[in-house]
């Protein structure tokens, strides 16, 4: 079994050899390591992408907007991912960000995951009936399981999810009420003697 450290170093070096700058290659190394740590096929997908890269054309998206439409070729997932991460503080104001065509969409997930950590908000990604929830770079939830991701995804939609509860007020109240059963009702004597501070703190 390859260690995560080997995966990081080798992905970084391979990315440099594939033509990316050292700084971007460093980002790729960490991204592929993250995918593999989360049980997603990072090395396999990067390999496929680099095998295709010299033969096929990809569009570099350097400035990410609300709606991104590649003119002819699918977007390079790495340049897109890095740009998204760099520009996340501007992008978090959009409710929805879309891309019409991205090659090897798995490769942008770690950048989005990191973006989620930077802004402290969950990010939802959907395309071709696949859904991913990127949770502050702590984990990636998906409905992927044994299904294979397409090499080119169409109409990717990214939603930045505002921080809000996953449950209703009533559900919270019910749970809280139950938790109260661990509390002791205070009589006068307990009120006077069981607290640390005095009854008046003006002295």
């Amino acid at each position: 079994m390859r260690s995560l450290s080997e995966i990081d170093t080798t992905s970084k070096r391979a990315s440099r050899a594939a033509g990316f700058s050292w700084g971007i290659s460093e980002e790729i190394g960490k991204s592929i390591r993250q995918l593999e740590l989360f049980g997603l096929p990072g090395v396999k997908t990067l390999n496929k992408y680099y095998a295709l890269k010299p033969k096929e054309k990809f569009e570099n998206l350097n400035l990410v907007k609300e709606k991104n439409i590649s003119k002819k070729y699918p977007y390079c997932p790495i340049v897109l991912g890095v740009s998204f991460l760099d520009q996340i503080r501007n992008l978090e104001n959009f409710e929805k960000i879309t891309f019409n065509k991205i090659s090897f969409p798995l490769l942008i997930l770690p950048f989005l995951s990191k973006s989620s950590e930077v802004i402290g908000k969950k990010i939802k990604v959907s395309f071709n009936n696949f859904e991913f929830l990127l949770n502050l770079n702590v984990n990636i939830s998906s409905n992927l399981l044994e299904k294979k991701l397409p090499e080119i995804c169409e109409n990717m939609e990214i939603n930045i999810i505002e921080n809000k509860d996953n449950f209703s007020d009533q559900e919270w109240k019910n749970l809280y009420k139950l938790s109260e059963e661990t509390f002791v009702e205070e009589n006068d004597s307990l009120k006077k003697g069981a607290a640390g501070a005095g009854l008046t703190d003006n002295d």
Binding site: S21, G23, I24, N62, L63, R89
Partner: peptide
């Protein structure tokens, strides 16, 4: 902002970091 500076200077990304 650095996000915009990086668009044309990603070759210097490692030292910006």
């Amino acid at each position: 902002k650095i996000d915009k500076f990086l668009i044309n200077n990603n070759d210097l990304r490692h030292v910006i970091r």
